[in-house]
Amino acid sequence: LVRYRTISKIPQITLNFVDLKGDPFLASPTSDREIIAPKIKERTHNVTEKVTQVLSLGADVLPEYKLQAPRIHRWTILHYSPFKAVWDWLILLLVIYTAVFTPYSAAFLLKETEEGPPATECGYACQPLAVVDLIVDIMFIVDILINFRTTYVNANEEVVSHPGRIAVHYFKGWFLIDMVAAIPFDLLIFGSGSEELIGLLKTARLLRLVRVARKLDRYSEYGAAVLFLLMCTFALIAHWLACIWYAIGNMEQPHMDSRIGWLHNLGDQIGKPYNSSGLGGPSIKDKYVTALYFTFSSLTSVGFGNVSPNTNSEKIFSICVMLIGSLMYASIFGNVSAIIQRLYSGTARYHTQMLRVREFIRFHQIPNPLRQRLEEYFQHAWSYTNGIDMNAVLKGFPECLQADICLHLNRSLLQHCKPFRGATKGCLRALAMKFKTTHAPPGDTLVHAGDLLTALYFISRGSIEILRGDVVVAILGKNDIFGEPLNLYARPGKSNGDVRALTYCDLHKIHR
């Protein structure tokens, strides 16, 4: 019993810090008490220290592992850092350059016999395009090294910054494609005289377009951006097909006994025919423009016929181009109408809503002055909100995010209106959640004399007048207030005048 009563005193000691020596009952000389009392004092002292730490809000209350900052290894790049964003855009520009100039170089340097010394005699450094290609190869190699040090988000939505895990993730992902696209074939085969082989191998750079397509997928929600990307894709495919079309004609031209190829026909049409040795002929500019003209006309199913396939190889390629053109029509131009419709969806919704308003007016036989006010209010409210119901949009977000959005939407009023000066951010967040926005066209009466005042109004834009009878008592403008002081009276009061809008007004109100 003594032991039980001794232990039962522990909660009292913990909360009230009572010393055991003052209790005459606990001072009985028993061996059990002498053993338990020192333990009680020690526990009391420890609990006292913990309570003191909690009340003082000291940093040592938290466990040590929670006080440590997340460790980022040296030379690790955050995937959302500004440097990584700028670097990704730079790589994107280099990939676009590669997609345009690599097929052009591979096709127009394929057994090209233009006048001038061969590239091997001039030297590697004197070729501007080769120098640019070398810079692109170096940048792609540097990009691989950067990807080995860039964080990523795993399946659990955690940012991984450990170098080993980053390397394994990159090896399992895009490393092989990036490595093949970054191989400097110019340096590996330079001086061997195989410019045709170098041009063909350099087309491996186009593998990076797969990554670019995935990154550009984030802009699919913007109709104008999608339309622009589709047109660029169409032009890029036409450019690639033009390079292939020229390569076919250029390879067949020296081996044909009869002059029936499209390059021969082009030379005869523009007065620059090929001679018996295969030299001469149109310039590279004429060849490229004509090839691009043929691919565009074939892809769009126009086909004027002034550039036509004559050999079997050219006919087979033309059939493939027609098939590609039909697929592009289905996948690209078939979506253009939907994209344009999405661009004008706001206008369509406006006309639909206006039609419903006019049908309501016609069905209920609203008189002319009231009908005009109804239409003007709808037009003004639509121009202010673009038909978007803010309350319906915010309803799907958590309250903390709703408060931040409301604070942002009402920031101008909260910053410049005098009653809100000096208020804490928590108070402003709470008030912003209570605001209701209303609009009024010129001549609209917001409050009639004798109406119950259940709200306090803040003028965000425009001006109003307060009338008693036919006498203008006051004219209020931006950041002015009218209405009933909230919670100042037990019952809502009545208006002693009319409140009429002089201009288009936007008002925020808080109800009782």
Rank of each mutant, 00 (worst) to 15 (best):
N306S: 01
L197Q: 01
T352S: 10
R214D: 05
V447G: 03
A423K: 02
M256A: 14
R71F: 14
T290L: 01
L93M: 10
Y219A: 09
Q415R: 07
S297L: 01
N335V: 03
Y104I: 01
Q253I: 15
T203R: 01
W262G: 01
Y329T: 15
L230Q: 14
D186A: 14
G191W: 04
G303A: 13
P419K: 02
V132T: 03
I183E: 01
A106P: 01
E376C: 11
M322N: 03
H439V: 13
Y219F: 14
S337W: 03
H364A: 08
L401Y: 08
F101Y: 14
S337G: 14
L414D: 01
A430W: 08
R362I: 03
H448A: 09
V357P: 02
Q365Y: 01
G346H: 04
C427E: 04
A392C: 04
T203Y: 01
T295I: 11
H380D: 15
S412G: 09
K66L: 12
H79Y: 01
K84I: 04
H380N: 08
T385Y: 14
F101I: 06
N312P: 01
C122K: 01
C232Q: 01
G396A: 13
F140S: 01
P70W: 01
I144G: 01
A403L: 01
L323G: 03
L266E: 01
G261E: 01
L216A: 09
W240N: 03
V160C: 10
G303N: 01
I141F: 11
L134T: 03
Y274R: 03
G305K: 01
L355I: 07
H162C: 11
V168A: 09
N265E: 15
E252T: 03
M251H: 04
T385M: 13
S161R: 08
L343F: 14
S337C: 04
G278V: 01
I189K: 14
F190C: 13
M256W: 03
L227T: 04
T295H: 01
E314G: 01
D404T: 01
A125E: 01
L236V: 04
S220V: 09
A106Y: 11
R421G: 09
E314K: 01
V307R: 01
L374C: 10
L446Y: 02
K66E: 07
G280S: 04
N156A: 13
Q415E: 12
M179A: 15
L67I: 03
L370I: 03
L67G: 07
H439W: 01
N156K: 14
L446A: 02
R208H: 11
I244D: 01
I270N: 01
F228Y: 01
P254T: 14
V212F: 09
E376Y: 09
S326Q: 07
W262D: 04
E158V: 11
I244V: 08
N335K: 12
M231R: 01
R373L: 03
R218Q: 09
F234D: 03
